[in-house]
């Protein structure tokens, strides 16, 4: 329904009804409300850091890397398919190339032989990037903690932002973890530290690919 607006140069503010309130809100920015709608004044943009805005956008369209290690990967796929539909959170395009991905969901047991290639994938991803450890195997080694060939938690080889325990976590669990990651990205926006800043990482050890 169209609002009947006065066409004369009536001084009554239109959007913020109370003149005193409008002054209080707008004057610190040197702005006032235009009688015919909208605002005008010194500043026509809201001051912020580019990082703030970019990270807000990033948080709402995180692209995970299409990389599954073992059983948890099946639940990760199940999260992406129609029943659970992680597309709702802007996350559908599972990218096949690390150069196009923002999040590495480490889904499955990490073995010493696979650790090298995985760290390599992680290093190929552009900054900023986040890592989600899915499953107890990746958080601590889980049921294979005692094994001679298993890395006891992926945080031994790369920084992890969100841990999703479970063996395997339900798709709802992974979605909850990704929501937590959204929160984390938004909270830290403008302040993320690069991967190199987070400290030295190993990239090679015995048992690596030859």
């Amino acid at each position: 329904m169209a609002v009947d607006r006065p066409t004369s140069d009536a001084s009554a503010p239109i959007i913020i009804g109370d003149q005193a309130r409008a002054d209080e809100l707008l004057s610190p920015f040197g702005m006032e409300e235009h009688p015919q709608g909208g605002f005008h004044g010194l500043l026509e943009v809201i001051p912020t850091k580019a990082d703030y805005v970019l990270d807000l956008i990033r948080a709402n369209s995180l692209w995970p890397l299409l990389s599954g290690l073992s059983c948890c990967a099946i639940e990760m796929m199940s999260t992406a398919t129609s029943v659970n539909d992680i597309d709702r959170f802007g996350m559908f395009p599972f990218r096949a190339s690390p150069r196009q991905a923002d999040v590495l969901i480490v889904a499955g047991t990490l073995t010493t032989k696979m650790a090298g290639p995985l760290v390599r994938l992680w290093e190929q991803m552009p900054e900023p990037k986040w890592c989600v450890a899915m499953g107890t195997c990746t958080t601590s080694g889980g049921r294979f903690k005692r094994s001679y060939s298993v890395v006891q938690g992926v945080d031994r080889v790369m920084p992890v932002d969100v841990y999703v325990p479970g063996c395997p976590p339900r798709p709802e669990g992974l979605i909850y973890g990704m929501m937590k990651l959204h929160e984390l990205v938004k909270q830290r926006r403008g302040e993320w530290r690069t991967y190199v800043d987070r400290g030295p990482q190993r990239t090679h050890w015995e048992g690596d690919v030859r």
């Binding site: 290690l69 073992s70 047991t109 073995t111 696979m114 294979f144 005692r146 060939s149 298993v150």
Partner: peptide, 14 residues
């Protein structure tokens, strides 16, 4: 092969 070798047989023996 072997990128997912988790030593299940050995763990089972223990």
């Amino acid at each position: 092969l072997g990128y997912l070798h988790r030593g299940i047989e050995k763990l089972c023996e223990n």
